[in-house]
Simulated scan of single mutants.
Amino acid sequence: MQVLLVGLFVAAVSASDVSLQEFVSSNTQFSASVYKRVSKTTDGNFLVSPFCTETILALVQSGCKGETAQEIVQALGLPLDQAKIEASISAVLPALTQTQNYTLNMANKIYVKSDFEINPQFKNLARDVFGTESESIEFGRKQKAAQTMNAWVENQTRNKIHNLVSPQDLNDRTKTVLLNALYFKANWSQAFPVAYTFNNNFTLLSGEVIQLDLMRHYQKHFNFVENTSLKSKFLELPFEGGQASMVVVLPNRKNGLVQLERQIDKVFMAQELSKETVTVFLPRFKIETTTNFKSVLKKMGVNKVFDQSQADLSGIAGKKGDLIIDKIAQKTFIDVAEQGVEAAAADYYLIALPLSGPPKSIKMFKANHPFIFYIKIHGVIVFAGRVTNPTA
């Protein structure tokens, strides 16, 4: 796929480090909330990027006022202080994107109805803090508007996400469309040898057994833990450089996914992983998902921003009630294979331990039944999802 110095010294924690850790905390909570809602309304495999939605909504709330802003802040778990929100974003975006070990391209864009003039202060904040551009567009010219927005998404995701916006979604009354695009590609710190991939059984939630290819690592060192309370195994597969990794969470029972998902808050919490010798079996899989985040957010208590009689986005443009959010859609894609991972979203490491002898205990991690996974960078959950059928 595509993370100790000992001595006498005075350590200083930078403000950006504190802001990053605060963001990690809120991101973990938000990721669990999103996963919980999506899993209840989606059958089979799915992939979401809570991080995408989190960043674009943090921007939107910067242009909201009163209870409209409060609802978004509470759902995201962000601090009430706008300066702290901006400090968190200013800390996390460079931390995630400024690296040569993997590719992470992220872009936000806000399209606003052409007869609304964007508040210059908001436009500057969007550009300087969030790296977001805003653009006026004529939604009434539905075909052209959709083509314009979809072309932007395709370009930002290296042609992995197509047709995010449908012309049927647009009309003269459409006032705002939020787009967030995220492209991630990374190589495993140690690739799965292609020659080790073999055909084996995979048991679906229905009990049906299918045949598919399982990638394999034989007695390698990975961060691993068996969580007895969650009745599951956690395996961390690092990407080159160590800042990013994929965590795979495998229920002990072949039909244990549903029970595990009921405790998703604990699943996404930091685990006490330790370096172990592990034989790993993991299927190759591809997932593409479209998620209506407006529905998800309403279930999380975000309502006013969608209601013309209550929405106050006057910090973006117009006055209270002039501007509302019509659509928040996210389309995601991931491809997991022997060499690494390629993933995209549009929102509308391995240290070998020296062995002095045979390993004391070899752990087995055989993902031959449904599991949860998430990709994190510097602790931030960027993608999360589940695999119920790798061949679907």
Rank of each mutant, 00 (worst) to 15 (best):
V6L: 12
S14R: 11
S14N: 03
V24Q: 15
N27S: 15
T28M: 12
Q29N: 14
A32K: 02
K36Y: 02
T42W: 00
G44M: 06
P50E: 07
I56V: 15
I56Q: 09
S62K: 01
S62H: 03
G63S: 09
G66V: 07
Q70R: 11
V73F: 00
L76A: 10
P79V: 09
Q82H: 07
S90F: 03
S90R: 14
A95S: 15
L96W: 08
T97F: 00
Q98F: 03
T99R: 13
N101C: 11
Y102P: 04
T103R: 13
L104I: 12
K109P: 01
Y111Q: 01
V112N: 00
V112H: 00
S114P: 00
I118H: 00
N119T: 07
P120W: 06
F122L: 11
T132I: 03
T132S: 14
E133C: 01
G140M: 09
Q143K: 15
Q147R: 10
T148M: 09
N150Y: 11
A151H: 07
W152F: 15
K160I: 03
H162G: 01
L164G: 13
V165L: 15
P167H: 07
V177T: 04
F184E: 02
A186M: 02
N187S: 10
N187Q: 12
N187G: 09
N187H: 07
Q190N: 08
A191W: 00
V194D: 12
Y196A: 13
F202V: 04
T203N: 03
L204N: 04
L204P: 03
L205D: 14
G207D: 08
E208S: 10
I210Y: 09
I210E: 10
L214S: 13
H217Q: 12
Y218G: 00
E226M: 08
N227M: 01
T228W: 01
T228P: 03
S229I: 07
K231I: 01
K231C: 09
K231M: 11
K233N: 14
F234E: 06
G242L: 11
G242W: 08
A244D: 05
V248F: 06
V248R: 02
V248S: 05
N252G: 00
N252T: 05
K254Q: 13
L260A: 06
L260K: 05
E261G: 06
F268V: 05
M269W: 00
A270L: 07
Q271F: 07
L273P: 02
S274F: 02
E276T: 02
V278T: 07
T279L: 09
V280K: 03
F281Q: 11
F281P: 00
R284F: 01
F285K: 04
K286P: 01
T290R: 10
S295H: 10
L297R: 03
K299S: 15
K304I: 02
K304A: 12
V305W: 05
Q310R: 14
S314G: 11
G315H: 10
G315L: 12
I316S: 07
A317F: 08
D322N: 14
D326C: 07
K327V: 10
Q330L: 04
D335N: 15
D335L: 04
Q339R: 13
A346R: 04
A352L: 10
G357V: 01
F365I: 08
K366D: 06
K366L: 13
A367D: 06
H369I: 06
H369D: 04
H369P: 05
F371L: 02
I372Q: 03
H378V: 06
V382R: 01
V382Y: 03
F383P: 05
F383Q: 05
R386E: 08
T388E: 15
P390I: 08
T391H: 01
T391S: 12
